[in-house]
Simulated assay, not measured.
Amino acid sequence: MPRRPTRTPLTDAERDARRAADRDRLEQAARALLTTDGWQRWIKVRGTNGLARYSVSNQLLIAVDCWSRGITPTYVAGFRAFLDLNRCVRKGSKAIKILAPCPVKQRDRSGENTGEKRIFFRTVPVFDVCMTDPLPGKDPVPLQPPAEPITGDSHRHLIAPLTALACELGYTVEIRDLPDGGPGGWCDPKAKQIVIAAGPANSQVRTLTHEIAHGLGVGYAEYGREQAEVLVDCVTYIVCSSVGLDVGGESIPYIAGWGEDGALDAIRAYAGTIDTLARRIEDALETQPDAAANEAAAA
């Protein structure tokens, strides 16, 4: 068996240059958020099932790389991960470069392990599903849930885990008839109550997600009305998209000049907040397949 060629270790100067290049890529990717188009593109990317598992920084690296090639990323994974999904990366496809954490054991001067670890980041290649083909003779694993209209009842089973999350936060949830033309619901942090308008189950899921995002700490007192609503609307769009609700016709809000000073740091913080809140709600919905099966069996 031919021996693999050994890699020449990088010099300290080469490592520093590579880290500087990675930092520059991350900063340029974050700057894309400062534009309305860049912000809205990132929200759409974050709302896909195939990118939620990546960090915000890697989501931005993926998004910017794909946009520069005219690709809308929908499901991103490594070469071997796609093989497990009965897909193979097409020959000649240019990889998307992201950063993966690499823990390294710390050693003292004598070479003994200190028990501590230091985290470095290394560049790893990933690909979008559009760069793959089905493996011959095998059926590709479905990667995205079918999009269901917001006016339907397909996602009724999500109301229970969302209600449970609200209760975990100390809120009661009430679903009742509300006047036409008025709000579809609200979150009262003082009374610890969330009220949702009766109607199609999918619409209830959307509104409940919105109000839970408020309940997770995005209130008018903390952020002001305009920014709070932008944050929770973005969280709602992401969560609903990730579970297969069709919110493509809804606009993604954006505030020009998120911070007069330190705008880049401010928008990074907002993106991190949105990602964290969306993950909290998505984690509560991880039981979706079992809940759906149980409801179908009961029916």
Score class of each variant (00 low, 15 high):
24 D>I: 08
260 E>Q: 13
22 D>Q: 13
87 R>P: 10
90 R>A: 08
59 Q>P: 01
11 T>D: 06
161 P>V: 11
250 E>C: 05
116 E>Y: 05
256 A>T: 14
30 A>R: 15
106 Q>C: 01
162 L>I: 12
84 D>I: 00
198 A>G: 09
120 F>K: 03
141 V>W: 02
201 A>C: 14
145 P>T: 06
286 E>C: 10
255 I>A: 12
250 E>D: 11
101 P>T: 08
30 A>E: 15
113 N>S: 13
119 I>E: 09
194 I>Y: 02
77 A>R: 09
117 K>W: 11
24 D>W: 10
138 K>A: 08
284 A>V: 05
96 I>S: 07
50 G>E: 04
15 R>T: 01
17 A>C: 00
12 D>F: 13
168 E>G: 08
120 F>H: 03
194 I>V: 11
68 S>A: 15
231 L>G: 08
210 H>F: 01
250 E>S: 10
130 C>A: 15
162 L>R: 12
245 L>T: 06
246 D>W: 03
34 L>N: 14
273 T>N: 03
139 D>Y: 06
31 R>M: 10
105 K>Y: 00
7 R>E: 14
244 G>H: 13
121 F>N: 06
173 V>I: 06
41 R>N: 11
12 D>T: 07
228 A>W: 13
8 T>I: 07
205 V>G: 05
92 G>D: 15
110 S>H: 14
251 S>W: 13
93 S>Y: 10
188 D>T: 05
181 G>C: 15
54 Y>K: 12
76 V>Y: 05
1 M>W: 07
185 G>T: 02
280 R>H: 11
253 P>C: 11
218 V>L: 03
281 I>K: 02
281 I>R: 03
240 C>Y: 05
206 R>I: 00
6 T>I: 03
240 C>L: 10
163 T>Q: 10
104 V>L: 12
245 L>Q: 06
197 A>N: 04
268 R>I: 08
274 I>F: 08
195 V>A: 08
86 N>M: 09
133 D>Q: 04
